[in-house]
Design a protein around this nucleic acid. Structure first.
Lengths: 334, 334
DNA sequence: CAGTGCTCCGTGAACGCTCACGGGAACGTT
DNA sequence: AACGTTCCCGTGAGCGTTCACGGAGCACTG
């Protein structure tokens, strides 16, 4: 029967006092240590329960072996690309007894700095999909183990994981050319600040097209928001531009699927009138109609590899880079 | 030039000593406090950086305002149902300045206890999809704020969030009956330990069918593993059973979609020969062919509501229950 | 010149817990 | 009877940080 609300935390000493024993005995009871009388243990446990005692994570962490928390920064859980990465990270972290705190920037570039600031003093290591150089620098400077994913402009000294879309684009474009296509539109993600820069899918596409003897230039690239709707809108642009595309290559599956659906809605036959190819190899791409040809990447592996690299940095190893090679999966859309 | 590797952590005192100032001054420099000379701040910061100093989260948490970490336990990130819930939880937690640690049981009942044990002493509050009574009891007994989601067998004293499938099933079955269907097969999730129990979709389906004058019994229910493949396999059972279903209702969209695809592959026309209805209203359900009729539930809201309840418990409020009513979205599959 | 204010910095204490150690009681052993 | 063991339990110290206080130095005022 408490007389009034008190905000003060209930400590191990409160329990000790109330049970008529010492701190240490309470600790023994709570932590299942052997050197304690079973009867005492029960009594102490009962008192602890009735007082609502919960040991402080922080005080525990101060003394015992510290729990490491891995921060995972993604753009958006709702983007089906990320859950698979998360799955890999979760599994690999679990194997090491780590905890994973997930942060989402909501695909908003301007939020990245804020998220980075939070991450910096709430976790021990970080795996992140980040684009803003300021945010990246912030985490890097904090000195914590850090792996940056899917970013071609990685500052020196930070580890990374990337997907070899140079090889991938060659495969994809080669496949399309083989099928007789000569005019290929690429739907680029307009949200990325590095649009068109070196190593991006955008420039890699142009390079691969040129490599196959196609007169590709910037006019072949159409910007799209990174979503189904974005792909659909971009498809309207392609169709309205008079470009005369017989094939469309999406920055990712989401954009490609959005575009493909819009095309069909507008009476375009797939793949007879226009073929579609995506990137990422989402489960989703297999389920749509027609099933989408795509550059499949092992996203779970990407996550696992990132954790592995973080672990390496913790043991003093230097920085490194993991490269994942996509695999072209040909389906009915092309 | 360090002489040898030493595992000891670099503390604020190391920095203080090395910079020739006191702890407090280092603290001021690191935390951007005003009462410090800018020149001193720079010098201290430089020393800290060169020593690789990183403040201890635990020591900080001990004294300052404590960061609260919310544990979120889900069955599987790869199941597209969960990312939307996660999204809601992340957003609501962020508004409160909380951190979210995600745990996945991998849909393995036997792992739930282990996860619960971890959760209990690594987080301050918990939102969970859990089925094993032992795991649930473990978390409940720890005394931390706790919200259990999507479980009809919630122990007294724990808050919960559930979906009103009683209403939902009435809508879904009503819709099917209206379309003239008289033999409806239900594909139940065989993975749940409460299969067929009170309040489950299974029994709710039978009740709704009876309510619409259908002679439904256990023979109308076919068990399925909770996945696309599980739905497909169950569809084989339905087709081979001679049950003569003209409509199939899935435990969720995943199962329904798997079944629908298998049916089409075997020459069944949808919806002419057989109609399909799912539950959950995944984004995916809109994308498949034909688009799936489904009982849409606001999963993001479910997550937000759960966090709200956790917050309420923290301020001393009692336990409660959130109920989310699904909405029937009719599409081309029925 | 004493008094007042401001800027910058250092010292003790406290946060809540576990570890290492030591001690008393009860029992058995020589 | 003296000693060694085992079983419980308590005491001091320390983990790394921030907060509340106090004090030194300097400039500016009356």
């Amino acid at each position: 029967m408490p007389t009034s609300a008190r905000p003060r935390r209930i400590t191990i000493d409160d329990v000790a006092r109330s049970a008529g024993v010492s701190r240490q005995t309470v600790s023994r009871a709570v932590n299942d240590k052997p050197e304690i009388d079973p009867a005492t243990r029960q009594r102490v446990l009962r008192v602890a329960q009735s007082l609502g005692y919960r040991p402080s994570r922080f005080a525990r962490g101060m003394v015992g072996p510290r729990l490491t928390t891995l921060g995972l920064v993604i753009a958006d859980v709702l983007n089906p690309f990320f859950p698979e990465v998360v799955s890999g990270v979760l599994a690999a972290a679990d194997e090491r007894g780590w905890q994973v705190a997930v942060y989402s920037t909501g695909s908003a570039l301007e939020r990245e700095t804020a998220v980075a600031e939070t991450v910096v003093d709430h976790v021990d290591a970080c795996v992140a999909f980040l684009l803003d150089p300021g945010a990246i620098e912030l985490i890097h400077r904090s000195g914590m183990p850090f792996v940056l994913l899917d970013n071609e402009h990685r500052p020196p000294g930070v580890s990374g994981g990337r997907i070899d879309f140079a090889t991938g684009m060659r495969q994809a474009v080669g496949h399309l050319v083989e099928r007789g296509h000569r005019r290929i539109a690429m739907l680029d993600d307009r949200g990325r600040p590095d649009a068109g820069g070196h190593g991006t899918r955008h420039s890699l596409f142009l390079g691969a097209a040129a490599g196959h003897g196609l007169p590709a230039d910037e006019g072949w690239v159409f910007p799209a928001a990174n979503s189904l709707e974005g792909g659909a809108a971009a498809m309207d642009d392609v169709l309205g531009s008079g470009f005369g595309a017989t094939a469309v290559l999406g920055y990712n599956d989401l954009i490609a699927i959005g575009a493909m659906r819009r095309a069909r809605d507008r009476g375009v036959r797939v793949p007879e009138d226009c073929a579609f190819v995506g990137c990422d190899g989402l489960t989703l791409s297999r389920l749509v109609d027609p099933p989408l040809t795509t550059l499949a990447v092992d996203k779970e592996l990407l996550g696992r590899a990132a954790v592995r690299q973080v672990a390496a940095q913790m043991t003093g190893a230097g920085t490194g880079e993991t490269v994942i090679v996509p695999r072209l999966v040909v389906r009915a859309s092309s």
